[in-house]
Design a protein around this nucleic acid. Sequence first.
DNA 1: ATGCAGCAAGTTTTT
DNA 2: CTTGCTGCAT
Length: 741
Amino acid sequence: MTSPLLAGLNAQQLEAITLPHQSVLVLAGAGSGKTRVLTTRIAYLIQSNQASPYSILAVTFTNKAAKEMLTRINAMLPVNTRGMWVGTFHGLCNRLLRAHYQEAGLPQSFQILDTADQLAMIKRIMKRLSVDDKRFPPRQIQWFINHAKEAGQRAADVIVDDPFSRHLLEFYLAYEQQCNREGVADFAELLLRSYELLNRNEILRDHYRERFDHILVDEFQDTNRLQYNWLKLLAGVGTAHAAAVFVVGDDDQSIYAFRGADTGNMKDFERDFAISTIIKLEQNYRSHGNILSAANTLIENNEQRLGKNLWTAEGEGEPIRVYRAFNDTDEASYIVDEIRALHADGVMLSDIALLYRSNAQSRVLEHSLFNASLPYRVYGGMRFFERMEIKHALAYLRLVANPEDDNALLRIINFPARGIGARSLEHLQDVARQQNSSLWEAALLQCGDEINLDTATASNAKSKKGITGFVILIQTLRRDWEHMPLPQIIERVLLHSGLLSHYTTEREGADRLENLHELVNAAISFVHEAEDDSLPAFLAHASLEAGEHQAGGGQDALQLMTVHAAKGLEFHSVFLSGLEEGLFPHDNSLNEIKGLEEERRLMYVAITRARRRLYFTFAQSRMLHGQTRYNIASRFVEEIPKSFLKWIKPSRDISGSGRMSSYDMGAAFSTASVASGEKLFKRTPVADGQWHIGQAVTHAKFGEGVILNYEGSGSEARVQVNFARAGTKWLMLEYAKLTPG
DNA sequence: ATGCAGCAAGTTTTT
DNA sequence: CTTGCTGCAT
């Protein structure tokens, strides 16, 4: 216990870190020092000579987390951590497949399809097979394929019993074949193929089982089936070289079930790995008491839990401030006012987060922040390697590295435009199909002896028109690739492809140009940092690590993001906006119980982001999809005991502030609890005038709700009511027993 | 080949 | 209200 490594740890943290060689489940609550435990465990194993870096494999979900882990370990240990395998599931699988591409049945420079690439590929095959995209939306096919893969199923393994699924299955098969022909792998493929590789190849499996004595997994609650099985296979449970699997997770923070994460993996882990020790990290070092208690009571409403209760040594702190706004604009201006006050009190803007359930909500907030001249940064949206111009540049590079990559060829064969229209393209595709070759080969054939590859140069690529010019261009670049360093190849691609000049002349091309130059910079730093600085390695890097959302932006700025994006972060103050039924919990989640529980976990995550101060805000009316919606407060607000909350009275001068026009006022007072406002309400009468939009009503069966809309009149009159419990319903006025209030 | 009108849809997201 | 896509017209 003398090691400085272990100083300042609590008993449970210490137990987890110093556990002997065995598999363990660590239930780590929000703010309980999860990352610290994980990294300290690794450092401890190495420092105490229980493990060499070479025998350690650590898996995370995001590149950011992987990087963070490495940085921390390096800070704790003077040892060279080079031999360790630390990365995302996909990154590690990629590494495995690159190392054993032959055994895995892949070409050496196989390319990775990101989600957009995959969708493009699917659309392309659909066109070829004349699949009706009305009956089979490409997205759905993509979903089908990815889910099959994540269940470990090849097309041959999927069992279908209805004609519709049979079509999907046929398509899956065609997709599989096309990927193999082109030598490309989508994200799920990386995992599935590397799973199959280890499963099939005993020598490799034994090699890696013997090598990795310690496997550590972060955010285990987010693993899907395939990832779990991959771990299980690699760990070799019950074999002579079984690894000690150290798994850290929090079932209460599982918010990715919608994309396949399966908390059932935690239970299965207990069983499959014969877990005898479950360590719970329940001391929270982040939040004040009230915030934590609110989170605890809220999450207790979920039935599917492993059970855990966070506590803190800190005092109660402040209550959660709850603000009921008249509308979305009013909500935003309240938030602006409070942020100003906090900032004036010395809280850094970057230490304040403004969270929302869905991205669409950021617009109104941004508008107000902009008008208030408060600097802010929005997370989410387009990432660097996903930008169109970057994708174009990368497509050139991909085609250079892999002539079979039809996706890449199609993206750029006529971009920038070089006079290759739809008909020549169709012809090309016909030829390729006939001789069962890549488009590139078809293109080669097409130019025939028009080109002399030996004398082809970038400049005469331009002199030739159409496909011939394109072929010469790629050939030239391909020869450059053989003797030029990566950044220089990219510069040549940008120049000779015509991308640079294209964006120079384009009206709004300045940003895109800048991004293209940034791509060269990215390559330069990649060459400096990566062990393998080849072009295929760079392309894999670009696919696996989509890059930061945007350049840093050094100034102190408020942080805007979805609740999902906030996971893992913490802030002095947190504003949780749009706490309305229908928004949060979101309408679409209410169909299933599991959906609601996930929404509640999302709320739990949101609450536990705050260290000192937490705000709940909601708007009684909100502009959504072009029309005003009337909402009641989220049930989650009511699930939190009143003693933790402090309702803020709208003390501000409503009529004179200019904050609301009298027009808005109509939208403002809508629920029974603001009855005083009813007088000001410019009623939109429904049918007989007894009811009006925005009015609070009670239904014998559905309970309390608010009238959203109506149609028809007389005995035909129907009203749309948003019920607190039952959701939004259309009711015939004549039959529905509605009472005011 | 490009551009615009018209229309449908509209959670959450990493790799 | 937005965005993104399709299809038609130039």
